[in-house]
Simulated assay, not measured.
Amino acid sequence: MLDTRLIPLIRPPLNRLAQTLNRRGIRADQVTVVGFIIGMLAVPLLWMEWYTAALIAIALNRLGDGLDGAVARIQGLSDAGGFLDIVLDFIFYNAIAFGFLLANPEQNALWAGLLMFSFAGTGTTFLAFAIMANKHQLDSPNYPQKSLYYMGGLTEGTETIIAFVLFCLFPQHFPWLAGIFALMCWITTSARIRAGYTTLRGL
């Protein structure tokens, strides 16, 4: 929901940093992998309840997620890069929920499980429609420079980042924060199922 408003604001500084990386011969896929590795460090950090350090790892991962796309737009978008990016993103999202489960299983296990279940809904609807959109050569009007068709919704990348930040800042309130975000994810999933089915039915 907020991605279309945030992207125009962060794209100029990301493009400048991407140009620097490109001049040094750093490839977009390398940025993707390094960002993923840094992000996965959040799991043991959450397990140890080092929430500030985990938040830094999450923030650096999200920076890498935006930066790899900026580098790719300079060097040329590729299907392989787009595939790697989206797969590692969804692994990372679920890993953060798992990290909070490890931090406090008694308090967080049910809600972390619900959150991962919710990510299954948003992820499958997103990827399934992207496959069909490619088959029918549909263009994404809001994200024309993406390698995949980006189906929007109430919970997109920006909302997910905000949720992760809140989880780290207020870990004692993870259950109800995760519950609220899971509900938002299912609203997104329901809307995508309806919109996707209607669109494809019309074709």
Rank of each mutant, 00 (worst) to 15 (best):
F167L: 08
L14E: 11
Q19W: 13
T32D: 07
M116H: 07
Q145L: 14
V71S: 03
T188V: 06
F164L: 14
L169K: 10
L9Y: 11
A163H: 03
A128F: 13
I86R: 00
A103W: 02
G196H: 02
A70M: 11
M151S: 11
G113S: 13
I161Q: 07
M40R: 09
T160H: 09
R16F: 10
N94G: 15
S140P: 05
T158Y: 03
N108H: 13
G39P: 03
L169G: 09
F170H: 12
E159M: 07
R5H: 13
A120I: 13
F83T: 13
K135Q: 14
A163N: 00
D139E: 14
V34Q: 05
G81R: 01
D65T: 08
Y149F: 15
A59T: 12
T188E: 05
L6Q: 04
Y51K: 03
L84N: 09
L21I: 09
T199N: 03
I86C: 01
L77A: 10
G66T: 06
D3L: 03
A72C: 10
R62W: 06
L63N: 11
E156I: 01
P105C: 12
A109L: 15
I10L: 14
W111A: 00
L114P: 03
F83N: 11
G196E: 02
I193W: 11
G121C: 12
H173M: 13
A57Y: 08
T4W: 08
G81T: 08
